[in-house]
Each structure stands twice: as structure tokens, then as C-alpha cells.
Simulated assay, not measured.
Amino acid sequence: MVVATDDNASAARGQKPHFVPKSGSRLYTRVFLYAIAGILIVALALGLGLGFGLKHDECPPTTSPLPSSTPSAVWKPAVGSSWQIILSQKVEIDSNNPIVRPDVDVFDIDLFVHQNSSVIASLHKLGKKVICYFSAGSYEPYRPDSSRFLKSDLGAQMDGWPDERWLNLRSTSVREVMVSRISLARDMGCDAIDPDNVDGYENDNGLDLTREDSIDFVAFLAGKAKEKKLAIGLKNANDIVTDVLDAVQFSVNEQCAEYSACESFAPFIEAGKPVFHIEYPSGAPEKIATADSKSACSAKGASRFSTVLKSENLDSWVEYCDGRTVKTDVVS
């Protein structure tokens, strides 16, 4: 409780009235004395917090509110936001000469690779927003929390990723791990999360995962992200775009141009939400044919997407549709 100062209390009470009794009149003298006594009683009552309906547990209003600890609102990225994504390397920013290349709006980086580092704070100082990546639908044995998954949580091996296995999105223990990861993202200062591999239903997952399981899982993740004041994106899963569009703030899409599926993500643009679009043309990095670049950047339905051309290991190299190529500084 903030207690008013004497000056504030006096201002609230106002000035005392000034009485001038008629000379030689006992009646007026008595009235004057009574009036003075009454004023003193009222003043004392106000000083004790008893007058004019003021209760013991109330405080007079203050001129400025107390500081609020409420987190800021969920970030809403704009359509057309420029970006860079690096998942296989750790971004390096010199605190003595803070600069980052490319000079884009958003960086999508790996959650665990950047744990216990100052990179996110440095990016924020440079005016950048940060999306933190983690796999929400696959088991990766090299992650620090991988031992928390139960054997029954693990499904079939992921095609092309022999160390990874699909996760049971219905599992309570899987969801508990994801809540911890979302909390970690909040504690690290991430602005958003990029939960990957939520589309197990489209693959031979060994767990009988369905489209409805993915919709429910994304809704669950979105609810937890909202609690932590984090934005969340839908990774791929074009079949469920319209089912989860209201729950997420953006899309991260891989290879919609290659598979002629970019129009599936048009509802994001129509809703004023960006599509962060990645293509992996042959020859990347640095030897991409002009025709391949043009095909990736001019795909039907992708004209307003935030498109980047990357190598499949998602390292520091990136090419943009204007032909610019950049390498972000990373820890060697």
C-alpha cells in the first residue's frame, strides 16, 4: 500500500475555512469555539483514515501507478517480414561490436544450441525478433531432455533421419516435455517458437497418428505458448492450415514450391500472417542455377511469402529472391 504524504493528505482535505466572530458576543464566541473544535475533530479523523468514508485498509490515489510485472503481449509478425534461419550452427555476435548479417527482421534459431548464451539478448538489442526452433514431434537422442521420453512414446524411425523417431503426440509425457521446452523458450527471451514435425500423420509413423491428433497437438502447443506470451508457428502440415489458423501467428514452410503446394498456405497471408518459406534448391550453397532460384521465388501462390533459399543442413548461408547471398557469423 502506498501511503500519502502530508502534502498529499492536505491537498485532499483542502483548506480550513476562516471564521471571524463578531466582537463582544458570547454566542458568537461559543459558536466560534464549537466550530474550531469541530474542524479539529474532522481533521483528526481524516488524518487517521476514518473520515469521508476512507477505510483503514484503503490508500488515497497516487499520481503514478506501481510498476507492472505483466509480460508483453504475444508478438504478431507482419506479412513480408524478412528473415534468416540457422539450425545447425550457433550465431555469434560480438558484444563489443554488435552487428549481425543479414540485416533482417527475424532470426529463427535452434533453442538448445543457443541455451545459456547471450545471442537472443544481443539480437533484441539490434531490434530483431527471435523464433526458437525445437522438434515437437520427433525424438532426438542428443537433446539434453531426451531421457524424459518413455519407450512407449517412440514410434517408427524418421525417413532420412536415422537417429530420430516419431513421437506419440497423444502421450502425456511427450506433452509434458514440450511444456518444459516452451517454458525454456520463454525464460531464454524467445519471441516465438517453431515446433517441428507436427505432421506425423503424413508419414509412416508407427503410432497410428491421425490428422486429428496433429490438430489437437498444435492446439495444445498454441495454448501453452499463449500462456507464456510466445507466438507460435505451424511447421508445414498444409492439410491442417485452416483447422489451426486462428491458434497460430505464422507459418514456417519447407519446399512448397518444389511440391506445388504454396497455395495451401494462402489462408495465412489472407489472415495477415506471414509465411516464412524455405526452398532447398540443388547446388546450394552458392551454386544454385538461376532457373532454380526463379522457380523457388515465383512459385504460384508464394508472391507474398518471406522466401529464403538454403542448403538442407540449414547453416549460416542464405540467398534471397533479389539475388543477394549472405553468411551470418557463427561460432566455428
Rank of each mutant, 00 (worst) to 15 (best):
A9Q: 09
G14S: 14
K22G: 13
G24E: 07
G24N: 14
S25V: 06
R30L: 14
L33G: 07
Y34T: 15
G38M: 11
I41A: 11
V42G: 06
V42A: 12
L46V: 08
L48D: 11
L48T: 11
G49K: 07
G49R: 04
G53V: 12
K55I: 04
K55F: 05
E58G: 09
T62S: 15
T62I: 15
P65V: 11
P67V: 04
P67Q: 08
S69H: 13
T70M: 10
V74R: 09
W75F: 08
P77S: 04
V79H: 06
G80N: 06
I86H: 04
D94Q: 14
V100N: 07
L111A: 06
F112K: 10
H114T: 08
H114G: 04
L126M: 09
Y133V: 02
F134Q: 00
S135D: 05
G137W: 00
G137M: 00
P141S: 05
P141K: 07
P141W: 06
S146R: 13
S147R: 14
S147L: 14
R148S: 13
L150F: 06
K151N: 09
L154H: 02
M158L: 14
R165K: 11
W166N: 01
N168W: 00
L169S: 01
V179R: 07
S180Q: 11
D187Y: 09
G189M: 05
C190F: 03
A192P: 01
A192W: 00
D194L: 04
Y201V: 00
E202V: 01
G206W: 01
G206S: 10
L207D: 00
D208R: 08
D208E: 07
T210F: 05
T210Q: 02
R211P: 01
F217Y: 08
V218D: 01
A219Y: 05
A219L: 10
K226F: 14
E227K: 12
E227L: 15
L230Q: 02
L234C: 06
I240N: 00
I240G: 00
V241S: 02
T242R: 07
T242E: 06
V244F: 01
V244D: 01
Q249N: 13
E254V: 06
S260F: 01
E263M: 06
I269E: 14
I269N: 07
K273M: 09
P274D: 02
V275R: 01
V275M: 04
F276D: 01
S282R: 15
G283A: 13
A284D: 03
A289F: 04
A289Y: 07
S295L: 12
C297Q: 04
K300E: 05
G301L: 04
S303N: 10
R304S: 12
F305A: 02
F305H: 08
T307S: 08
L309N: 08
N313E: 10
E319H: 07
D322R: 14
T325I: 13
V326A: 12
K327N: 12
D329I: 06
D329E: 12
